[in-house]
């Protein structure tokens, strides 16, 4: 009837190391979870896991597209050829330059736009809608639109720059490898800055008002507030956004393919790999190039994660 306090129970058991007992109900839930996950896991293994394994494997063979004869194992030969192919090196530099330039510019510009959007002033709704437009336009279409604007004879970019007196004669932007790369960066910046801005904006909106009010009461200069308070606070979110953008930029294909075609001077690694794989029908060589791109991306991600000291909080709980 009355409650006693049996301290003795635990004491008699000699305090064994307790393993958390998973009850029957929890077991049932876990079984259900396995069933629930199964279709997704199978689908991902089928469309991602298996093809990835095959791609890596094919990189060590001399497989050819449509070739009926059995592919044979050639060891590291494909990788050796790759590293001695100047076109691969060009593609690597193009990819790295493109990724670095576009991510840096997008971060800075995205920050500016996010700060503007975060200011509680009229007109921000319109602006948010406006920045979403480039994001919604398919990359291929962006590439075509800008390709037309860059046109050497009739492009509006030339007209504008000549009209403003910045250039004295129209330029063939896409014909020159240097300007072509920057032209591509400009398109990517135009298209993906909104994404960056929205991510930064979301981070900004999580910051408590009080901090800013306190800073204002203390009379801290707004620029100092930005450097000393805002930036450190949103740094983790910013780093994650930068990594996502970097990964995206490193695998860029559509822009380069549509704007510059197979032009070796502006081909990215993705373009290079597909070209070997499909156009030159050299599946082994193309697969090796793909594998190397994955390794490169892993390496860069690792560096970014370490330098940025980011912990991807996939699942804290």
């Amino acid at each position: 009837m009355t409650a006693t306090v049996p301290n003795s129970v635990a004491a008699e058991a000699g305090e064994p190391v307790r393993v958390e007992i998973v009850g029957r109900m929890e077991q049932r839930r876990r079984r259900a979870a396995v069933f629930f996950l199964m279709p997704t896991v199978i689908a991902l293994l089928l469309v991602a896991g298996w093809p990835l394994v095959r791609t890596v494997y094919l990189g060590f063979t001399d497989a050819r597209l449509g070739g009926s004869e059995q592919a044979s194992f050639v060891g590291l030969a494909n990788f050796g050829f790759l590293l001695s192919d100047p076109a691969w090196w060009t593609a690597t530099w193009v990819t790295l330059k493109f990724a670095t330039a576009s991510v840096v510019i997008e971060t800075v510009l995205g920050m500016v736009i996010a700060l503007v959007l975060n200011a509680h002033l009229p007109g921000r709704g319109l602006m948010r809608a406006a920045v979403l437009v480039p994001w919604a336009i398919p990359t291929v279409i962006s590439a075509q639109m800008w390709g037309w604007m860059y046109h050497d004879l009739y492009g509006v970019v030339n007209t504008l720059l000549v009209g403003l007196g910045i250039l004295d004669a129209p330029r063939a932007w896409m014909a020159n490898p240097d300007t072509a790369l920057w032209a591509m960066v400009a398109v990517d910046v135009w298209k993906t800055t909104p994404f960056m801005a929205l991510l930064i904006l979301a981070a900004l909106q999580t910051l408590p008002h009080e901090i800013y009010e306190a800073a204002r009461v203390d009379g801290v200069h707004p620029l100092k507030v930005f450097w000393r308070i805002t930036l450190p606070l949103i740094r983790p979110a910013l780093m994650v956004a930068i990594i996502f953008r970097a990964l995206d930029a490193l695998r860029m294909f559509d822009l380069a393919y549509v704007m510059a075609g197979a032009n070796a001077a502006t081909a990215t690694l993705s373009v290079y790999a597909r070209q070997n794989l499909v156009d030159f029908q050299d599946v082994g060589f193309g697969s090796a190039a793909s594998t190397l791109l994955v390794l490169l991306i892993l390496l860069i991600t690792g560096i970014l994660l370490t330098v940025g000291r980011v912990r991807l909080a996939a699942d804290a709980r």
Partner: peptide, 18 residues
């Protein structure tokens, strides 16, 4: 003698009640 542990925390430590 009902007991409940979450991880290493004893939340309920031997309760008798009718």
């Amino acid at each position: 003698g009902v007991e409940k542990q979450f991880g290493k925390t004893n939340v309920i430590r031997g309760v008798d009640l009718s």
